[in-house]
Design a protein around this nucleic acid. Structure first.
Lengths: 200, 200
DNA sequence: GAATGTGAACCTTTTCACAGCG
DNA sequence: CGCTGTGAAAAGGTTCACATTC
């Protein structure tokens, strides 16, 4: 999050930013900003603040964004499309090397610059291209079996959009996004806000 | 998360579940499960476990899922499509009352059972239908101004997919999902796992 | 006997407050 | 003087362990 705002400041030509300013932008506290950053090093100048451009570079390094990551997208549905379309990915060093699906209707269809490939080629491509990150946007029922194949083929991180509990070995990182659960969280917040204030 | 798994157990005809079992399913610990549930009440029976069907019902009540929530989707792009398509929403009590866009090319196009509406009608529809939840799937630049209009029209919760920092008054709940940030989190995890193990 | 509910212990995260540096 | 960096204090969250109940 800090990186996001520092990039904006940098683009705006600002040379220096205080923990106060960053905290305000990110919706946190100055002390939090200083503790967070100090975990990785001592980037600021006392009396001045943090050098925007330099800190941006440090954070990119820390986050591993100075190299290119090869990504496969599994599932040529709407979510897969939204992701493949997202131009921010390429800029940030995530290169989509292929989009895969098991539906005969979709295989071969154009997909941005590429075409949708048959999911039977998934393992081979992951191995050959040495892709390390996979985005999973397929129905829940198929999720675990595809994950197992990905892991077997050498994938090391998975971003999962299927509303299913996925199991991975400890050397693989997993992050799940469940849209229904996000909405349910809002429902809970709303319900409580409303009952505590007595509104309809 | 508990609700998700309890529903599965209920559908499978299981009448009772121990904190041990739930913990195992959800990837947490029995003590955690008991503390979490006990926050809302005393639902279990000592020596037996939790009554699956009854607890499911309690959790739905707690999460505010026993009523219908009217939802507007703003942005008829790929993410909006993925969400509007998602059948789980309707089942869970989220009724999409309209999809809005500002692009002349998209307005009027069929969209599932409905058609894409002009975003100029957004406030009126939100007011008339008394929609309380909005899903935002539009470019970042337009996000804050649309949010302001939504809040003004009476929206009480927003699920935001634009990679922008949004500001809302305290009576409005906001949840942001940023796909680029999720991937960057994986990049960080991967980078650290790799450097600490010395792999390429 | 089996498994919950819960105070107490433990661990993590956030906040405070101030010494130290530019 | 302004603002960072950081120990120490406070708050928050998790785990333990056991009395209690079915």
């Amino acid at each position: 999050m800090y990186l996001r705002y520092l990039e904006d400041l940098d683009a705006g030509g600002q040379h220096t930013a205080s923990s106060d300013e960053l905290a305000h932008l990110c919706g946190t506290t100055p002390a939090q900003v200083r503790k967070d950053l100090s975990f990785f090093g001592s980037f600021g100048k006392r009396g001045l603040g943090y050098p925007v451009h330099e800190l941006t570079s440090h954070l990119r390094e820390i986050l591993g964004l100075k190299r290119e990551w090869k990504v496969v997208i599994v599932g040529a549905g709407k979510i897969g499309a939204a992701l493949a379309n997202y131009r921010g990915f390429r800029q940030r060093g995530f290169k989509v090397i292929g989009v895969y699906d098991n539906s005969a209707e979709k295989i071969g269809l154009p997909w941005g610059e590429a075409i949708v490939r048959d999911i039977v080629d998934l393992e081979r491509d992951v191995r050959v291209e040495e892709a390390l990150i996979a985005v999973l946007a397929i129905p829940s029922d198929d999720a675990q079996s595809v994950v197992d194949r990905l892991v077997e083929a050498g994938i090391r991180a998975i971003l999962n959009f299927a509303p299913a509990q996925i199991v991975v070995p400890s050397h693989v990182s997993l992050k799940s996004v469940n849209m229904a659960m996000e909405l349910e969280g809002l429902s809970f917040a709303l319900t409580n806000a409303m009952t505590s204030k007595g509104a309809a």
